[in-house]
């Protein structure tokens, strides 16, 4: 465990909690893509099946459980409790265009052709693109609430910190996982445009709105 990995995990946790609190406090999930949140719930479910097969550390187990629980709570709030506020008309990204190719790729390119390993690979690939429905929704409506941009910032920062963590681990531990690194690079690149808008607009106190 190095500082980049730890801050990456905490940044991920911050993103998840910010989103939950935003929905809970405002009693509304307006502007949030339920499809992205469903994909993240699927990501955590397929990745953390090793909770049943191996124990790594108390930290590892508790963080996994927290991520899974929070992602299901978010999906519940969007599709059940605050369904009336869900902006389904703008959440029109076709998720099958992500899930099907990612599913195929995880069968073709993986570390080991075993069920758990394929599901783990699937979750890594899917996570890298799971934010697309959310970004698509923002590009469609042309704006995002400031709190939603904080959520996206921490979510993007998390994988960027993981990239530094992997460079660190490569040099100091000889650890290198090509699948995770390539997917992590793709994931981080998807946020670059958003990072630019976040720094140039949101951090200067302006609302994130895209030119018409």
């Amino acid at each position: 465990m190095n500082i980049f990995r730890l801050t990456g995990d905490l940044s991920h946790l911050a993103a998840i909690i910010i989103l939950l609190l935003k929905i809970w406090k405002t009693r509304s999930c307006a502007g949030i893509s339920g499809k992205s949140q469903l994909l993240f719930a699927l990501v955590f479910t397929t990745r953390y099946l090793d909770l049943f097969t191996s124990f790594i550390s108390l930290y590892n187990t508790s963080m996994k459980l927290i991520y899974v629980a929070c992602s299901y709570a978010t999906v519940y709030l969007i599709y059940m409790k605050f369904k009336a506020t869900y902006d389904g008309n703008h959440d029109t990204f076709r998720v099958e265009f992500l899930v099907v190719p990612v599913g195929g790729l995880s069968f073709l390119v993986n570390h080991d052709f075993s069920p758990l390993e394929i599901l783990w690979t699937f979750s890594i690939y899917l996570e890298s693109v799971a934010i697309l429905p959310q970004l698509f929704m923002i590009s469609k409506t042309g704006e995002a609430e400031t709190i939603t941009t904080h959520y996206l910032f921490f979510l993007g920062l998390y994988r960027a910190l993981y990239l530094i963590n992997w460079i660190w681990r490569y040099y100091f531990e000889g650890f290198f996982d090509l699948i995770a690194v390539v997917a992590g690079v793709v994931q981080t690149i998807l946020y670059c445009d958003f990072f630019y808008l976040y720094v140039t607009k949101v951090l200067k106190g302006k609302k994130l709105s895209l030119p018409a």
Binding site: D50, I56, H111, E117, N165
Partner: peptide, 10 residues
Amino acid sequence: EDQKIHKDEL
């Protein structure tokens, strides 16, 4: 053990 290594990350 190699297969388990990446599972220490989240």
